[in-house]
Amino acid sequence: MRLPKPRLLLAVPAIALIFVFMILPITNMAEMSFRTTGTSEPFGEDYTLAHYSRIFGDAYYWGVLVRSLLTAATVTVLCLLVSYPIAWHMSKAKGMKAVFLYACIASPLMTGVLVRNFGWMIVAALNGPLNETLMALGIIERPLRLLFTQGLVILALVHVFVPFMVLPINNALRNISPTLIEASTSMGASRRDVFRDIILPLSFPGIYPGVILVYVLAVAAFVTPALLGGQMVSYMPTLIIGELTGTFQWPFGSALAIVLSLSTVIVVAIFTALTAKLMERSKA
């Protein structure tokens, strides 16, 4: 009998963890999504496809799904635009300045999710500091209605997800040898050429995980849309939580969750496929 390779043995805790906390619950949820609606219990005895046909047959759910995916995409793009210059700056910093910048970047994560969102409610309120500052500066004449808008949800999500984008990009930028920049400069590249042809493609190994992380987190965000989005607009997570804990429609809520998960996986897969060549070339 051959002993299992030690490498496999080392993987056992990870596999066990993933099995118990990911595979099992997802399987359970997938199964739940085919259950019939119960009358006195959260779910019934029999199996049905009714929940899926209800979701796909109703423009309302399509709308919420598309809104969720688009909002997450917007958050991701804005996050990338905000984070790249920060990551660039950070990749140049050394010593105490670098430590200070890391602390600043991580700061949104150091605040609890409720506190952070209540903070936004105060900041964005009609007579809150943001409106007062803008009015004092003469930029606006009357207060803007910011609270309970999609814009505020996006802003708050970008704020909290910036670290997930900055850190991997910073890492990738640090791995670009400065002589590559000098080499391209000596070949006639302007600063813009250097950025477009060298830095941007070579930082892709950082952009890729950043984009995936932020997108997945943004799709699944619940507290921020629930608190700052108000009652007017719904997102998939708020809808799902509503079904699961509000009306106790476990099978329907599960079906919504499965649809959201699969949609996210598809988006990630498309992004990965589109960038596979760039990723393959630019990884160190």
């Binding site: 040898s177 590559l180 000596s186 006639g188 070579l202 760039l278 070339r281 630019s282």
Partner: peptide, 27 residues
């Protein structure tokens, strides 16, 4: 530096890792 028109060869070669040999030379 980018307008001097000098060729530079570096100790670590500084080839662009994401470009093929021909793309490096033709850049």
């Amino acid at each position: 530096a980018n307008r001097r028109g000098f060729g530079v060869v570096f100790q670590n070669y500084a080839l662009f890792p994401h470009m093929t040999v021909a793309e490096n030379i033709g850049y």
